[in-house]
């Protein structure tokens, strides 16, 4: 006999797990909530880490930022693994069809030579900056505190790897494997890239994970993405390099979306206490200066005579954004 179980109306004993009910009451919870809140262990650890014996495996003292509840740092996108990977698969499909179209129709041949060279000089070496961003975000995912913020950090790390791979693909489409070697040479030795490389390497040795969050996700991304994927992108489109714009579409969309997440983290952390606000603002000042310095030669290569005004505009927008987040710039 086939039993039809659907016909049974059952009153559940509870609507969600206790940790979720303690926070939000016993009512149906979202997958984001059940998959995020309180998942990281907080209370009892067996052994001190051999790599840092003075602290516990998960320890609030790995940053100077203090939060009463680290789960206040929620992700406005409510990304759990499934939501993140499905969102990204849609975006990669769109990006992929752009690359395919460009390759199938030989659109590269229609890009003016100087624009192509500009993309090779400015965009392709950025793959190393993206790799640094991946390392910073995997550090935060490993050593940060509370799944609410560490979870999106691992997604962000993987996203940066993807961007590095899109930039690689741009190099391959525009010029082939030689483009990657040339970009790496420039990254290692060309004057244009040394201030940026120095900055990226300096961030790689920062130990306070929230400091990395500010340096990397707020400042470095907040200044370079608008410069390259907004201003430079318009330049490409306006001068007949639409094909290049098509290949950076993922980055443009992604920066808007992830910016909202970064803002939410900074805003809540800064609003928590005057101490946090001062600390984060100090980091902002500390990292804003070297990034701007590193962006000067890159802007000059990208915008020539307009470099100064473009960078000034990007900086003004970034400063306004930070002020809105409650930071002192």
């Amino acid at each position: 006999m086939e039993i039809d179980l659907r016909t049974v109306a059952i009153k559940p004993l509870r609507h969600t797990f206790d940790n979720i009910a303690r926070r939000f009451g016993d009512k149906p919870a979202s997958r984001y909530q059940e998959g995020t809140y309180d998942i990281q262990q907080t209370d009892i650890f067996h052994y001190r880490p051999m790599w840092e014996p003075e602290l516990q495996l998960f320890d609030k003292r790995r940053t100077k930022v203090e939060m009463k509840d680290w789960y206040a740092l929620k992700d406005p996108r409510q990304f759990y693994y499934g939501a993140w990977t499905i969102a990204r698969s849609r975006q990669q499909e769109a990006a992929d069809s752009c690359f395919e179209m460009i390759e199938d129709r030989g659109l590269v041949a229609m890009i003016p030579a100087e624009l192509k060279q500009l993309a090779l000089d400015v965009l392709v070496p950025m793959r190393h900056v993206e790799w640094g961003a991946n390392m910073g975000n995997s550090y935060m995912a490993a050593y940060g505190y509370g799944t609410a913020i560490t979870q999106p950090c691992i997604y962000h790390a993987m996203d940066h790897l993807a961007v590095a791979q899109y930039l690689t693909r741009i190099g391959l489409v525009l010029d082939g494997p030689e483009a990657l070697d040339a970009a790496k040479d420039a990254w290692m030795t060309a004057a244009l890239w040394q201030p940026m490389r120095r900055h990226v390497e300096n961030v790689l040795v920062v130990q306070d994970w929230f400091e990395i969050f500010v340096a990397q996700n707020l400042v470095l991304e907040g200044l370079t993405y608008p410069l390259l994927y907004d201003y430079l992108d318009s330049e490409f489109s306006a001068k007949g390099g639409t094909a290049i714009s098509m290949m950076t579409r993922f980055m443009t969309e992604w920066a808007t979306e992830t910016g909202k997440w970064v803002d939410a983290q900074i805003k809540v952390a800064a609003a928590e206490s005057p101490e946090n606000m001062v600390l984060i603002s100090d980091w902002l000042k500390q990292y804003r200066a070297p990034v701007l310095e590193a962006l000067i030669p890159i802007s000059q290569r990208a915008f020539g005579d307009h470099a100064e005004s473009v960078l000034a505009e990007v900086t003004a927008q970034f400063d306004a954004r930070c002020a809105k987040l409650g930071l002192s710039v």
């Binding site: 559940p12 004993l13 797990f17 206790d18 940790n19 059940e34 998942i39 693994y81 990977t85 997604y155």
Partner: peptide, 28 residues
């Protein structure tokens, strides 16, 4: 990221059991 997936898909799969049966409710 895969392991994050495993943690979450397991919690999500067993979430429905938690609504109806005992012993699941405060696992962490």
């Amino acid at each position: 990221v895969d392991e994050m997936r495993h943690a979450q898909t397991q919690i999500h799969a067993l979430s429905n059991y938690n609504k109806h049966y005992d012993g699941f409710h405060d696992f962490k």
